[in-house]
Every structure is written in structure tokens, then in C-alpha cells.
Amino acid sequence: MSTAPLLQVNDLKKHFPIHGGFFGGVTAKVYAVDGISFDIAKGETLSLVGESGCGKSTVGKALLRLFPLTDGQVILGGTRIDDMPSSTLRPMRRRMQVVFQDPFSSLNPRMRVRDILAEPIRNFGLSNSSADLEARLVALMDKVRLPKDAINRWPHEFSGGQRQRIGIARALAGEPDLIICDEAVSALDVSVKAQIVNLLQDLQKELGLAMLFISHDLAIVEHMTHRVAVMYLGKIVEVAPRRSLFGAPKHPYTEALLSAVPQPTPGIQRQRVILKGDVPSPINPPKGCRFHTRCPYAFDRCRVEEPVLRPIADAMGEGHVSACHLHDRSAAENPLSGAKGAALLAVG
């Protein structure tokens, strides 16, 4: 890519200490995010997928600096923000906003919609007159397709989907470049989910927003993303443009994840890879490849040597990287070399 990405993340780490013992010292660490790198271009949607506990939400919170990082760099629009003191970080926060999962607990029940939306505008000094503020509020309500007269109501007067619209309007109030959606549609009902997904897509087109879409719902991700990063136990195991990832996954974990999603088509024939066992604990992640304890193709090397992300040749497009020792094998020996995606998903 010739132009610099909007957001660049290098070797991000976040370890949480576990206190215990007689003196309350640090007895262990949770390796929630353990060295991940990615970037997001202006106007692009990157999705972060993985199962619970893989560290995807921690990545979102770390980018927002909701807690200090253990290690790594976060560069937003050419400026490093991970080591910024909070006074200089404050204006930068405007450029990166968040929409949370739970539309019920993420809005202050004692603030009217008007105040919820006006707070970021005032905080970042975006408006200098009350007439301008009013115009901005009306425009925000319009953007998220809520009636203007709803602005004087309280959060409890709205349904889940409407509250999520308010949450999105609040994120847009600061005129951000990047919105982090942390499972923003997961708590919603099917029909309402479709409304919010459509709204997010429209807004992205309208405003040229970049999005980091954190989700475990692969069908929704495929529907609305440009690129996908798959996480497992604090590491990114595969990054690829949407069509390459869903059409020809290169990592055994991605393959298993895709094949596990129940498809709303009865009676289809598909190849199923059912993983055995559970995700290991991030307190004591397995040595070597973190996925080797559940991987159906693991061999000796996987148990000792950790694979690194590297570019994989892909007929469906560029920018496909994956971390697996199988990529060193010849195509004939590699169970994942063929385009199996279509068979996994049972599409023609």
C-alpha cells in the first residue's frame, strides 16, 4: 500500500497480572494479547474474529488506551499514541470512538439522549454556539435514523436496537476517523441486527469511516468486512481479504472455525472439522504453536517451534498471511493447500 495506513499496530502486548499468595504478589500472568500487528486503511473495515477469551476485546480496549499497554506501538494517523501522556492523548481520542456490545449498560440511564450526544461534542470543543450544537444533535439523530423528537427522552424509553443507534450516534458525535465496534450487534435480535448492520455499512460509505469490527459471528463479518484477522489465544493466526479468507482459509484453526458455523440451509453436504477439547488457558499457553493441542494436523515441529505470520500465495488475491508450519510442506503434503473453503461452506 502506497499511502500510510490510518491505524498501525506493531507487536501489541497486554498481559494482566494475577495477584495471589500471602503478600499479594504477582503469581502468574494472563497473556491476553501476546504480540499482534495489523493495520487499517482509511475507510476500511478490518474484522477481528475468534472465540471468547482469544483477546479480541482486549485489543479494542488497548487501542482505546482504556488501560496501559504492556508493550508495542499504536500509531494513529502517523502519530504514536501508545506512550502519549493523557493530556496530549485527549484530543487524539476524538479520532477513535467505540460502540459497545450491550446497549443497556453502555448508556447512562440518568442522562437524556440530548446530553449523551452533546457530551463528546462539548468535551472535544467541536461546537462554539448553542445553535451549532443543536444543529449537530439533529444531524446525528438523522444519521442514525432516529426521530428528532426522541432527543429529549431517556435511554430506558428505547428498545435495544434503538439504544444501539444512540450508541452509534454518540460514537459519531466526535467526528472520528475510526470506530471500534466491540461485538456491537451480538446482543441484538436477528431482525434488529440486520437493521444495525445495514446502518453501519451506510454510515461507513457516507462518512468514509474506518472500522475495527470485533465479532464472533462469522456470517455477519463476511457480510460487512473488507479484511479479516483471526485470533487464537492472544495471537493472530491468519489475516486475509474477505474472499480469500472465506474462500480459501490457510490456517487449520480458520478452517475449523468456518466449518463449525451452522448454516441456515437444511440438508447441505459439507466437510466438517470438529475440534476436540477446549481452548487452553491464556495463563499458561501451550509451547510451540498455540493451536497444536487441538489441531488435527499437528506434527512434532508444532509442539516446539512457534510459527510466524508470513505471506501465502493465494489465487484469490494479495495480502494473505498465515502462521502455520504446514506452509513449509509441499502442496501435495499440505492438507490445506487446495481451495477447500467452498466445500467447507457448501457453496457452489
Binding site: V190, A194, L218, A219, R243, L258, P264
Partner: peptide, 14 residues
């Protein structure tokens, strides 16, 4: 409506 509002995996390929 319910069936139409659920994306299917593989939609980007077809």
C-alpha cells in the same frame, strides 16, 4: 423476513 435478515457464510464467494 427472518430468513432474509441472516447472512449466509460464503456470501462473498457467490
Amino acid at each position: 423476513g427472518l430468513l432474509g435478515s441472516v447472512p449466509k457464510l460464503g456470501s462473498s464467494l457467490t
